[in-house]
Amino acid sequence: MREIRYREAVREAMLEEMERDERVFLMGEEVGHYQGAYKVSEGLLARFGEKRVIDTPIAEAGFAGIGVGAAMTGLRPIIEFMTWNFSFVAFDQIISNAAKASQMSGGRVPCPIVFRGPNGAAKQVASQHSHSVDPFYTNIPGLWVVMPSTPRDAKGLLKTAIREDNPVIFLEGETLYNVKGEVPDVEADEAIPFGKARVAREGDGCTIVAWGAPYYVVLDAAERLRQEHGLECEVVDPRTLRPLDIETIVESVKKTHRCVVVHEHWPYGGPGAEIVDQVQREAFDWLDAPIERVAALDVPMPYASNLETLVLPNVDRVIEAVKRAAYL
């Protein structure tokens, strides 16, 4: 298989789906002439023209709403938020309108729209630009919430998202765009179904569930745990946060008897807490230790790099949590 970057994987998914279906268009700030603030949409304007790759003014509520209306009446918009931090301005459009159109109309008016963009902390972008929005959107019935960690998942899940008939929150990793990984050839047309977790590393010592940037922290930690403690961790990436593939996670826990959940969002609630809740009920009799969580510290992101490092989940914190869960 060829290797491409996460950024290119996202672009390929959009390009292929736009070629496949004329109703699909991309709209957002700097997506066209500037080629995307993170260069994700590079070349798309040249390929599809201004009709389908549309630069907007800074007006998130406006263009999110335009997307919802266009989707309800038959188009298939991809709405890019330059980062998910700016989606708060459009919260009402997403939550009150996009997520509700189908239900309010008794299922008569679907809303096939994808909202996508980078999620999570980057490097030192501080308080207002470092949100992990996963908990906000996973709480809303009516929204699919997807967060791919690898280029292959990014491409395959985005293709599914664009073909889906109801709103998808597609969270890309702001720090993952340069990650390289194997992705099937274009001809494979791989669309990865929602609601299926992926076991990234097999082991019987402890299950670690992680997605987004912490997924890579966890892979490093798992390697160190093997080398330093001879403990083989099983790493599960849920890929879709709503709905959750709890079965795959539970199956793993039944094998390892231990579970650590690692996420970048804040500790109060969110998919992190949801996973713990479901695992303790579904696998209570198999658990040998309380389920551990490693989260961002419970503060808005400080700018200073010494503090940012403290706030974000890191390898040492993951190792500590696994050692507690494994009584090492």
Partner: peptide, 30 residues
């Protein structure tokens, strides 16, 4: 990112604050 900064290193470039001179911030969301 230092403790003697106007926002004690928590704010950074985008979030200068200095109420003593009437400056109520550097804000990041357009």
């Amino acid at each position: 990112g230092k403790d003697t900064g106007c926002s004690r290193g928590l704010g950074g470039s985008m979030h200068f604050f200095d109420p003593e001179v009437g400056f109520y911030g550097g804000w990041g969301i357009v």
